[in-house]
Amino acid sequence: MKRSGSDSRLRAVAIALAGLLLGLIAWQIAGQRDPVLLATPVRSFEALVAMVGDGTLPAALLDTGLLFLVGLAAAIVGGVGYGLALSRSRMLRGSTGWLVFALQSVPIVALAPLILAAFGFGFGAKTLVVFLSAVFPILINTAEGAKHAPKTLLEVARVHRSGEWPLWRDVLVPHTLPYAMSGIRQGIAMAFVGTFIAEFFLQATGIGGLLLSASARFDSATVLGLTVLVSVIAALLMGLGRRLEKAFAPWREGSTE
């Protein structure tokens, strides 16, 4: 694909843009036919602009962003830390490794009412939801990566009489980093989901809160505009995650797939 030149890539982008434009036109026409259920793109855009004007949208974005970032940061610290610990300690692995895999399959959405009942709807409780959503992919990827540290390289380290700390510096950490990064990439997506769980089911704040209240008012223009905005942010986050993943492994061949 890469070799096929900039011409075909340009064409691909053009076709994708044309597809988007077609979609927008279809949306506009449909919206004009049924203005109650389906707001037109123009009206949705106007709704977003109005919310920027009165400051609600920036404030909500800030709210959501803060929750997302704090929860994600906690998940990265916890996930990478415990993942590394799991890989080096037989005892921890044998005793809690399977628990991690069991907990991982608990749907966090379903836990939300319990968390609400137990911890309320403060920032801490909401952060907990984001943390729980994002921590498992990070933890599991890190542990898997560290576990598969190549045997030859461990031997190289031993032949050179490496101590434990240089072994981490030269072998374990650089080997595990890309795995942790792909865990973090998945964690970013999950943290975003977790942010909405928190905002929908604990306390209606941020973008989630705006979506809920607009939906309750049957304000389809606002809901549609926000939904598209959310999907754009999600796609950007995913792209950012992939960038991060690549950036931390310059020694890998061009395509990491």
Binding site: T152, E155, V156, D170
Partner: peptide, 10 residues
């Protein structure tokens, strides 16, 4: 080593 045993990240 037969398969070189180089650090791919170095």
């Amino acid at each position: 080593f037969q398969h070189f045993g180089l650090f791919p990240w170095k």
